[in-house]
């Protein structure tokens, strides 16, 4: 808790610096694409949002699994704190993808493998959040939602490899691929800066939300103690 309090503002500043540099290079300091023109700049927010959507879901499922198996209370808190952040990233990946798809593909949406599996991921996040808070007993809610999170983990490799397994409108992998990235360094730099900014943003908000959850549980314990004292 003490470490989190110290680290939180640093994560905030790191996010601001990385985001500032990433936005400058992404919007101004990098060239337009020879085919996609200026719409390529959507990549600098779309790809980090999509990566973080997958990263957060993996972190959520691992934390929920640790909470389920070893009954580690902090793991449960981390899972619960991650879910809304991951849901926001997934929503943004879908929205910015749609805004990129319209001028480049000629459509806002298509039911192909990559887009549909990302939409399923968004519903998994919402399902986790709904199930987690659906029980009066928080322990039962944590257990039920952890099972959903673990089952839903199968969707992560499906999303990653959907562009290879099926014919989709979405382009195949261009960064994490055999033979290295196929993106020019002038575009790779702002992309990595924005991925860094999104990662530190996630850790920043995660710390805030975990501290809030832990404070809320101390608050509940304090209220219980007061009620018991008043009863005696």
């Amino acid at each position: 808790m003490k470490l989190a309090t110290v680290v939180t503002p640093w994560l905030g500043w790191l996010t601001v610096v990385l985001c500032g540099a990433g936005l400058y290079l992404g919007l101004y300091g990098s060239p337009a694409d020879y085919q996609q023109g200026e719409t390529v700049r959507i990549m600098y927010v779309h790809v980090p949002a999509a990566w973080m959507a997958l990263f957060c879901y993996t972190a959520l499922a691992v934390s929920a699994g640790v909470g389920l198996i070893w009954r580690h209370p902090v793991a449960e808190v981390a899972a619960r704190a991650t879910a809304p952040i991951g849901a926001c990233f997934t929503f943004l990946a879908l929205l910015t993808g749609s805004l990129w798809g319209k001028p480049m593909w000629g459509t806002w949406w298509v039911w192909d493998a990559r887009l549909t599996s990302m939409l399923v991921l968004f519903f998994l996040y919402l399902g986790y959040l709904a199930l987690n808070s659906a029980f009066d007993d928080p322990q039962r809610g944590a257990r039920a939602s952890a099972i959903l999170a673990l089952v839903g983990l199968i969707n992560v490799p499906i999303i990653k490899f959907s562009v290879d397994w099926w014919n989709t409108l979405h382009q195949p992998a261009s960064i994490v691929r055999m033979g290295g990235p196929s993106v020019h360094p002038a575009m790779l730099w702002p992309l990595f800066l924005m991925i860094g900014a999104f990662t530190t943003y996630y850790l920043w908000v995660l710390m805030l939300r975990m501290r809030r959850e832990l404070t809320a549980s101390r608050l509940r314990a304090r209220r219980r103690m007061q009620a018991e004292e008043a009863g005696v």
Partner: peptide
């Protein structure tokens, strides 16, 4: 934005 302002800025 090369005529794509309606897509880039809202993103």
């Amino acid at each position: 934005m090369g005529g794509y302002a309606g897509f880039v800025w809202p993103s």
